[in-house]
Amino acid sequence: MIAAFVGGLFIAGGLVWAVQFGMRVRDRELPRPTADEQPHLPDTGAVHEIREIREPDEVPHATGRERLLPHELHHAGSKRSEDQHRKRWLPGKSGSFGGGGIGHA
């Protein structure tokens, strides 16, 4: 019984020490930014989402060498598609697996 009480006092003392240590560390940190220092919207307003159709950008072939170097690769794995017309879903022609539809008629 005494060992459990001493163990509880030890744990409580450790928690009190940890809180005091955290308060000292926080007092040494830089102050929080004021409202004027917070980020704000640009004068032109919010940035809006751009929707476009993307397609895979193929890796170029190494001509006359064994391999391509990193600076010879493209910066993204996809590129803007020439055809920006979005293909629409046609009823009865496609759907998800197990969607409950009758499928092709």
Rank of each mutant, 00 (worst) to 15 (best):
E49R: 12
R86S: 02
T34D: 08
V16M: 11
R32C: 07
A4N: 13
G92M: 04
Q38K: 10
V19I: 15
T63N: 07
L41V: 11
A3I: 15
M1N: 15
G103A: 02
P39Q: 07
A46Q: 12
H61F: 13
G100I: 04
L15Q: 12
A3H: 15
I102V: 12
G45Q: 08
D57T: 04
P56F: 05
K79D: 00
G14C: 13
G7D: 15
L41Y: 10
Q20C: 07
H48S: 06
H75T: 03
L90S: 04
P91E: 07
L30W: 10
P56N: 04
R51Q: 06
E49H: 09
D43F: 11
G45M: 06
H40N: 05
A105V: 11
H61G: 01
G98E: 03
V47C: 04
H85N: 09
R80F: 01
L41I: 09
T44P: 00
H104V: 10
L15F: 14
E49K: 13
R28I: 06
E72R: 00
W17C: 05
M1P: 15
D43N: 09
A62I: 03
G77V: 01
V19D: 02
L68E: 00
I102C: 03
S81I: 02
E29R: 13
K87I: 04
G13N: 14
W89I: 07
S78D: 02
G64T: 05
R32Q: 07
A62S: 13
D36P: 02
L69G: 04
R32N: 08
E82H: 04
H74E: 00
L73T: 03
I53D: 01
P33G: 07
E58T: 09
P39G: 04
L73G: 01
R24K: 12
G22R: 15
H61L: 12
V59L: 08
P42V: 05
E58N: 11
W89M: 03
R54Q: 05
P91C: 01
L73M: 06
G99L: 03
Q84A: 02
H61Y: 14
I102S: 10
K87N: 02
G101P: 01
V59T: 14
A62D: 06
Q84T: 00
R24Y: 11
P31G: 03
L15C: 09
E29N: 10
H75C: 00
G103Q: 03
E37Q: 15
E66R: 13
P33L: 11
H85M: 05
T44M: 10
W17S: 06
A46E: 12
R88I: 02
D83L: 02
A35Q: 13
G99M: 05
E37L: 08
V47N: 08
I102G: 07
H75Y: 05
Q20L: 12
P60H: 01
F10T: 15
R67L: 06
H75R: 09
L68Q: 02
R32P: 06
D43L: 11
F5C: 08
A62Y: 04
R28D: 06
M1V: 15
F21Y: 13
Q84L: 01
F21C: 03
F97N: 02
K87P: 00
K87V: 05
E72N: 02
A3P: 12
L30N: 07
F10W: 14
P91A: 07
R28C: 05
S94R: 09
E72K: 01
G22H: 14
G8K: 08
H48R: 10
L15W: 14
R51M: 04
G64S: 08
R26E: 13
Q38M: 12
L41W: 10
